[in-house]
Amino acid sequence: MASSSSSRVTERRGIPGAQFVEDVHTYLSQSGLDVNSALAFLQERLQQYRLVEMKLLAQQRDLQAKIPDIEKCLDVVATLKAKKGTGEGILCVVSNLALTADFEVSEGIYSRACIEETDSVCLWLGANVMLEYSLEEATSLLQKNLDNAKASLEVLVGDLQFLRDQVTITQVTTARIYNWDVHQRRIRQAAVATAQEP
């Protein structure tokens, strides 16, 4: 429905762009819509934008929770690498070669573990899958996952900003069409009143 009366419509990652209507009369005549149909279309589009926004916000929350977890895992692997071969531990309980750590069993429940010098760690990959990696491989994989999560978060933030812009444009266009319709009705009522005068 692009026309000379509206700005160019763009799209970002499947999110349709909104039209800013400069000339309502031209927009309605070129699109073949009446005022009620145009307003209904715009309201439907706003609902679609709201659904997409909810989905993107959920993805953003997931990534914002995931990034600190990955960073913690990287810190643990880095600590294991740093303590390897030194004979030191953070809190030596059993021997000089043991590292004592508190880990979260479930939300708010922690347990203490004695970690002996190790060359590998096990990482959860999702879908109830855990694999053992060397410390170097684990660092590489976790860093790659962290970089991907940060890049995905950056794209999501851009998508959300684009989406908010489209919502604003659609709301402004809706108001312009509604106000134009009210103005046209007043003109018609004034013309009828003038015609009825003696």
Rank of each mutant, 00 (worst) to 15 (best):
Y49G: 04
A98E: 15
A65Y: 08
A82H: 10
V94M: 10
L123A: 04
A58D: 14
S134C: 05
I115M: 02
V77Q: 04
S111V: 02
A78V: 01
L42E: 04
L63I: 02
Q143G: 03
L99Y: 15
L141W: 14
P68L: 03
S134H: 06
E137S: 10
M130N: 11
S134M: 06
M130T: 15
I115A: 01
I115Y: 01
K83W: 02
E116F: 12
T86L: 07
G126W: 10
M54Q: 14
F41S: 13
S140G: 05
S111D: 13
C92V: 11
V77Y: 05
W124M: 09
L80M: 04
G89H: 08
K84M: 03
M54H: 09
A138L: 02
Q143K: 11
D102P: 00
R61S: 15
L51T: 11
Q48S: 14
E71I: 03
E88F: 10
S134D: 11
T79W: 01
L99C: 07
K72N: 13
E107A: 11
S134E: 06
A65I: 01
S111Y: 07
V129T: 14
V93I: 11
A101M: 15
A101Q: 14
C114K: 08
V129Q: 14
S106Y: 10
S140T: 15
E117V: 04
A127I: 10
D62F: 14
Q43W: 01
C73M: 12
A138C: 02
S134V: 07
I115K: 01
V76L: 12
Q47K: 09
I109N: 11
D75M: 08
W124S: 13
D119W: 00
F103Q: 05
S140H: 12
F103C: 01
T79G: 08
C114L: 13
L91S: 07
L142T: 03
P68F: 04
L97T: 15
T100I: 06
G89Y: 08
